[in-house]
């Protein structure tokens, strides 16, 4: 059976188009669908939580089917990208304190750096632990970041990056829940490799 990957639609926000395009560019067989409801969610094998938006806005957009998403994330392999990774956490503070999906531990806080925020651009990601999602990626590889907030997590970290001498979490992995702070769909071949790893799980 051909696997079905679903991308959750947050309404206005989300970079769904580009994630879909990047998944297609891997040339691996799959059916990609955009999920708008609990009913859609039931039909897919894997879930992608896209990025772009704000923690508070996205949690409010998905409030109607929050329970189903939480259940889905527990049962089906899930990849959160950028903001999608951040909402996997317990809590966020962008535009006010907001409870997240709590699939991984930790909170999302404004990056505590002196230099320019948002952190926009290519940074080296260093894998510190064997990981399914980072399989085949060089121990130090460059990925594209675009964020002002970071996930503060000490338990599920598999890769770190550095911005203005500040180390922060780049990748988390807990069972079949994966989160990447960077944009794999915008990180050339290395980014596509991450998506391939997720598809091949």
């Amino acid at each position: 059976m051909i696997q079905k990957i679903g991308i959750i639609d947050y309404g206005n926000a989300g970079n769904i188009f580009n994630i879909k395009k990047a998944l297609e560019a891997t040339s691996l067989g799959m059916k990609i669908s955009i999920l708008h409801s609990a009913k859609d969610l039931k039909k897919v094998d894997k879930i992608i939580l896209p990025g772009v938006g704000t923690y508070r806005d996205v949690m409010s957009e998905i409030s109607a089917w929050l329970k189903d998403i939480k259940e889905g994330v527990l049962k089906k392999p899930t990849l959160g990208i950028c903001l999608g990774m951040q909402i996997l956490s317990e809590k966020g503070y962008e535009y006010g304190e907001t409870v997240g999906l709590s699939a991984v531990g930790g909170e999302v806080l404004k990056m505590p750096v002196k230099g320019r925020i948002p952190h926009i651009g290519w940074s080296t990601v260093e894998t510190i632990k064997p990981s399914k999602i980072m399989k085949g990626i060089a121990a130090q590889e460059q990925f594209y970041f675009m964020h002002s907030y970071e996930l503060v997590n000490y338990t599920d970290v598999v890769a770190l990056s550095t911005y203005n001498d500040h180390k922060f979490v780049a990748v988390v992995e807990k069972g079949n829940v994966f989160g990447v702070q960077f944009h794999p769909e915008k990180s050339r071949e290395a980014g596509l490799k991450i998506l391939k790893n997720f598809i091949n799980l």
Partner: peptide
């Protein structure tokens, strides 16, 4: 910025 985030 409020809907899509500052970085956007």
């Amino acid at each position: 910025a409020k809907v899509f985030g500052n970085q956007c």
